[in-house]
Design a protein around this nucleic acid. Structure first.
Length: 271
DNA sequence: ACCGCTGTTCTCCG
DNA sequence: TCGGAGAACAGCGG
């Protein structure tokens, strides 16, 4: 499920549900989500702590508890946060925080691609995956110059570089393809050979892509669970639309494999 | 029944 | 050291 917009949605939900609350019990099942750490380490690190803040860095969630304690959460491909009553079962729950309001926040992750780590926040922030993250794709100061500094570091194809979290944090397969379509740039182009006009277009396109995704998402004020209805229409411009006509030039859209993922694009108007 | 997949990380290879 | 391919993780939906 999650790229940057969905993770931002999860961050907002978590703030509403959990900031200011005390964790009465933290429970985790042994699973690869814990990366070999013992469930009781989760319990020991978080039990009795009050959540002070929730931050998002790219697709990571950083939970700041009192006393400098922290939790680092990545939703992987199928992870999601849900709120239940304490005692209510949740399928595929890999960890849960039982709060002082009789609610339990579960990390539900059927495929176990997600990740939960706990410990002093200072240590979590020094972990390589977090420390090496590029600037947030949603950062309003991301302009042509900033993008040039990031993309100039590699000669890989644009689409691959945009999905590299060390280059830019937050874009995944869908939004990288969507941003390139909006910028009219080929996913195959070398990252380090863009003109400043093209970089400007790309910076704007990334902002539009993320903004559009935010806008088409339910706002986190209500206690709704974010689930796409089955049969809902594909909301994207090119993702998942191979064979359909380009919304800009009517050329049939195409797809091809790139870095083990499927890239969707318009071969006519993306150059 | 089979294939693909909104993510990350690892290994193997050039 | 870089980069590409493929595998692994594991369940669901088309």
């Amino acid at each position: 499920m999650p790229e940057l917009p969905e993770v931002e949605f999860a961050a907002r939900q978590l703030r509403r549900w959990m900031v200011g609350r005390r964790v009465e019990r933290a429970v985790a099942e042994p699973s690869r989500v814990l990366r070999g750490r013992a469930p009781r380490e989760i319990a020991r690190a978080l039990q009795g702590r009050r959540l002070e803040a929730v931050r998002r860095r790219g697709k990571y969630l950083l939970l700041d508890f009192d006393g400098g304690a922290g939790a680092l959460l990545h939703l992987g491909m199928t992870g999601k946060l849900v709120r239940r009553e304490v005692g209510e079962a949740e399928a595929y729950s890999r960890a849960r925080f039982e709060l002082d309001d009789r609610r339990a926040i579960h990390l539900r992750d059927p495929r176990k691609f997600g990740r939960l780590a706990v410990g002093p926040m200072a240590r979590l922030e020094r972990m390589k995956e977090v420390a090496a993250l590029g600037p947030d794709a949603n950062d309003p100061s991301l302009d042509a110059r900033a993008l040039a500094a990031r993309l100039g570091r590699t000669c890989r194809p644009l689409k691959i570089a945009l999905m590299d979290q060390r280059v830019l944090a937050g874009l995944g397969n869908i939004h990288a393809a969507e941003a390139l379509f909006r910028a009219q740039l080929s996913p195959k182009r070398r990252s380090d050979r863009l003109s400043s006009a093209q970089l400007g277009r790309l910076a704007a396109a990334i902002g539009e892509t993320i903004g559009f995704a935010f806008d088409s998402m339910p706002q986190a004020e209500a206690d709704i669970e974010y689930v796409e209805e089955p049969g809902a229409e594909n909301p994207f411009l090119v993702y998942g639309k191979a064979g359909e006509r380009c919304p800009r030039c009517r050329e049939p859209l195409r797809s091809f494999a790139q870095g083990g993922r499927t890239t969707f694009w318009c071969p006519r108007c993306q150059r």
